[in-house]
Amino acid sequence: MTALLQVRNLSTYFHTQDGVVKAVDGVYYEVAKGETIALVGESGCGKTVSALSILRLIPEPPGKIVSGEVLFEGTDLLKLSQEEMRKVRGAEIAMIFQEPMTSLNPVLTIGRQISEALELHQQMTKQDAYKEALRLLELVGIPQAERRARDYPHQFSGGMRQRVMIAMAISCRPKLLIADEPTTAVDVTIQAQLLELVRGITRELGTSLILITHNLGVVARYARRVYVMYAGRIVEHGTAQAVYHDPQHPYTVGLLSSVPRLDEPRKTHLSTIEGQPPDLIFPPSGCPFHPRCAYAIPKCSKDRPELMEVEPAHYSACWVALQKPTPWKKIS
């Protein structure tokens, strides 16, 4: 399979008054054409920053992409001029943001916000772009599109706004779609609908999808491969199947066991990962997870593990995962 996007050794730092925050610190991942991958991790682990870095939308200052390559169809996006980069944004790579309530401009109509990208990238006339915007609104399931296109964002519910965001993102048929926690801010009942919508559209258009989430249930259903992020680094990577049933990093094990399950007795306490996510200005020595890790060995606080192939096509940045069998139990 040919990779559409390869992120190599990407590091994005933020310069703050307290010091340099290494939000993304040497991240690797890749997406094949038409493939869906998931980027999983706790809040603040660098998922969003790594995605924004792909589109070079990091506010600078304070942020800065300090190293790495983002190869999109073989071209390093980090080396493009601003002008060339603008032709990629929205047209080749589009993004759905986490916050539908604040991600739409309050003083422009919904129709206008969708049509402006079409005018720009597809050289459509104003009328054609607007007509296409109506079609897209219908496609994402907004009833009475013609009337609703003249409405403003405040007249839409959260779920509806996220549909509008989806319509906007797919309007120019991008090759890659980045969905940054697209369902975090909407009701549970709407979440599944939105994800099904995104899946249906990406399948139809053959669009690759990077799904950023902290919801492991979502990952299992939609992604073929999973990258688990912790403290700005990828700590585990494999097929969704393998990561779920045979996790190779204690952090993933912790994440999986903190998902509530219906098949457990009702009185069981939900297990959590002890401790706090690490300070990204002064990360712990060795493996950044070792202070919270129940399986840590002396080596963990000294040497930082890189991603290693611990099973065929299954990578983990964990010294303990090299021991066979692993001390944690498989999850059925």
Partner: peptide, 10 residues
């Protein structure tokens, strides 16, 4: 929404 506008390539 300003970030959204930039993400469209404007």
């Amino acid at each position: 929404y300003v970030r959204t506008a930039r993400a469209k390539g404007l």
